[in-house]
Simulated scan of single mutants.
Amino acid sequence: MTTRSDVLDDAREAGEDTSAPSATRGGESKRSIEQLALLLFITVPFLALLAAVPLAWGWGVSWLDLGLMVFMYYLGCHGITIGFHRYFTHGSFKAKRPLRIALAVMGSMAVEGPLVRWVADHRKHHKFSDAEGDPHSPWRFGETLPALMKGLWWAHIAWMFDEEQTSQEKYAPDLIKDPALRRVSRDFVYWTILSLAIPPLVGGLVTMSWWGAFTAFFWGSLVRVALLHHVTWSINSICHAVGKRPFKSRDKSGNVWWLAVLSCGESWHNLHHADPTSARHGVMRGQIDSSARLIRWFEKAGWAYDVRWPSADRIDSRRKSEPSEAA
């Protein structure tokens, strides 16, 4: 299956333009300050997530905090799934410029890294999925149980601390050429600050108290970011290790139903790897895919067009002839 990433890669294969301006801070290598920032963005929200249960038991969580957490979670989640993934990485649909910029900003507010770097890593992942060269395959160290446990940790989080291997000029030249998208990617730190600041600002103004601002920051910023991080990373780790595989793909991608709602439809991962440019991942009866639903609404509003909806024939052509398997 030839994907958009393959086309872009082949177009640059003859010679990479290393003189092009880097699209993200730090260029092709993650400098020490970026490593520290990454560690901070991961560990602080994760510690908040660990503290969430005992703190909720002790002093509860208000409807305002819960509402801010849910709203900000799905704002960032759909920014990643619809924007960073289905649109920018795979070209599952075309978007008018206001929607394109909005999706870039929404995805940036998920605090998962700059747009260009995210897309470049993911296009490389599809080119080498679960094979040598894949930035985050859980099968990197082998197929024995100890190797898989090590691989799951690598795919879930450790790969982000490895020296940067993905060339942004090679895997995301189309994004780098767009000045607006390049600017959104370069300003990732500001979108992160905005993302973390909105909940305490709203919480403080609604309650007119510093305590309201603090609890909103705890739930709507820290816990929300940690939860979204681990759900997203689970697509890299869990969905490439277990799950049903009713469709033909050249890797070990699987469908994990219990992640569908939290991942906005991304955990129907087997179909995605069987048909990467499809705008819908949950194509079977009962498979919830909120990202596909929103893309449909964007299409009806005239904001999105040329959407690559999977036809029945296209879906059937990718089915396995034998019963679906689970790892």
Rank of each mutant, 00 (worst) to 15 (best):
R97L: 15
L99W: 09
C77W: 00
K96A: 15
G79C: 07
K94E: 12
V105E: 06
I80C: 07
R100S: 14
A104I: 12
T81R: 00
V105Y: 08
C77G: 03
G79W: 02
A95H: 10
K96G: 15
H85G: 14
G76V: 01
A102L: 08
A110Y: 02
F84Y: 06
Y87R: 05
L99M: 12
I101L: 10
V105T: 10
L99H: 08
Y74A: 11
K96L: 15
A104W: 06
T89H: 13
C77S: 03
A95R: 07
G83K: 03
R86E: 03
K94L: 14
V111S: 09
E112I: 12
V111E: 01
M72P: 05
V111W: 08
A102K: 00
E112L: 11
H78G: 10
G76T: 01
K94C: 14
R97Y: 14
A95T: 12
R86I: 07
A110D: 01
F93R: 03
G76F: 03
G83W: 05
E112F: 13
M72N: 03
F88T: 10
P98C: 15
M106Y: 03
F71Y: 03
C77A: 06
Y74E: 05
A102P: 01
F88C: 10
S108R: 09
Y73E: 02
L99K: 08
F93K: 03
G91T: 13
Y74D: 06
V70W: 14
H90K: 11
G79D: 01
M72F: 09
A102M: 05
C77P: 00
G76P: 02
A110V: 04
I101E: 02
G76L: 01
I101Y: 05
K96Y: 15
I82E: 00
M109Y: 11
G83A: 11
L99N: 07
F71R: 02
F93A: 05
M72H: 03
Y74S: 09
M109K: 09
M106A: 05
V70P: 13
I101T: 07
T81Q: 00
F84G: 03
R86V: 09
I80F: 04
G107S: 04
I80V: 11
F88R: 04
A95V: 13
R86W: 04
V105G: 10
S92L: 08
M106E: 00
A104M: 11
V105W: 10
Y73V: 11
L99Y: 07
Y73P: 05
I82T: 02
V105K: 08
A110W: 00
L75T: 08
R97M: 14
H78W: 06
M109C: 12
C77R: 01
V111Y: 09
I82W: 00
R97A: 15
I80P: 05
G83C: 07
P98Y: 15
T89Q: 13
I80N: 04
